[in-house]
C-alpha cells in the first residue's frame, strides 16, 4: 500500500482514465463542458483515476454503478502490441509519466492476466537496457538519448540509482590514486 504522502502515488491517481456514465446525473454537466445541465447516460468523459474509481465502485440506490471505467489509452491493445514487439523503442513517458504505477492500479481494477505479463516483461527488458545506459555514460548525448527520454518516472529512479552507484565506485577508484 503506498504511503498517504507518496507524491508518485498521488500523481498516478490524478492521471485520467476514460469513463462512461451509466445513469443520468443532474447538475454534473460541467464535467462535459455544459455547466448547469445534467450529464446524460452514456456520456464518455475522461476523469482522474481517483474520481473514476470512486464512482465506479460505489453503489447508488438504483443498484447500478454510476459509471463504468475503461482501460486508458496508454494500455490499449495498440500499445500492448507495440510493447510485445519491442519494449525498448516505445516512448512510455509520452504515454503516461507514471506508466507502471498506472498499469498496476488498473490491474487492481481489471483482471487482465496478459497485461500483467506484458508489463512485467517490458519492465525487465527495459531495466537491462537502463543498466547498460547507466553504466556506460556514452548514452546521455549519443544514441541512448532517445531511449532515456522515454523512461517513465520509476525507470528514471532506477537509472539514477544505477548511475549513482557506478559513479561512486569510479570515484572511489580515482580517490585511491591520489
Amino acid at each position: 500500500m503506498p504511503s498517504y504522502y507518496d507524491i508518485d502515488a498521488i500523481l498516478t491517481d490524478s492521471q485520467k482514465v476514460p469513463c462512461t456514465f451509466e445513469i443520468t446525473v443532474p447538475g454534473l454537466g460541467y464535467l462535459d463542458g455544459n455547466p448547469g445541465e445534467p450529464i446524460k447516460e452514456g456520456t464518455k468523459v475522461e476523469l482522474p483515476l481517483w474520481l473514476g474509481e470512486m464512482l465506479a465502485v460505489t453503489q447508488n440506490n438504483t443498484n447500478t454503478p454510476t459509471l463504468s471505467l475503461d482501460l486508458p489509452q496508454c494500455l490499449s491493445a495498440r500499445v500492448v502490441n507495440a510493447l510485445k514487439a519491442d519494449p525498448r523503442v516505445v516512448d512510455i513517458r509520452a504515454l503516461a509519466p507514471h506508466f507502471y504505477a498506472l498499469g498496476s492500479r488498473m490491474l487492481e481494477l481489471f483482471d487482465e492476466e496478459e497485461l500483467l505479463d506484458v508489463l512485467t516483461d517490458t519492465f525487465k527488458r527495459r531495466a537491462k537496457e537502463i543498466a547498460d545506459q547507466a553504466h556506460h555514460p556514452r548514452g546521455v548525448l549519443g544514441e541512448g538519448a532517445e531511449f532515456l527520454r522515454g523512461l517513465d518516472e520509476s525507470e528514471r529512479q532506477l537509472f539514477r540509482s544505477a548511475h549513482e552507484s557506478s559513479k561512486a565506485v569510479r570515484n572511489w577508484m580515482v580517490d585511491l590514486k591520489k
Binding site: 512485467t120 529512479q157 552507484s165
Partner: peptide
Amino acid sequence: GMEIAEGRAFIGGVVDGLRKIGASKEA
C-alpha cells in the same frame, strides 16, 4: 564485495518495480 555495493541499488530497484507491478496479482 565491491560488485555487490555497485549492483545493489539497481537490482533492488528492479525487484521493487516488479513487485509493484505484480502487487494486484499478489493481493
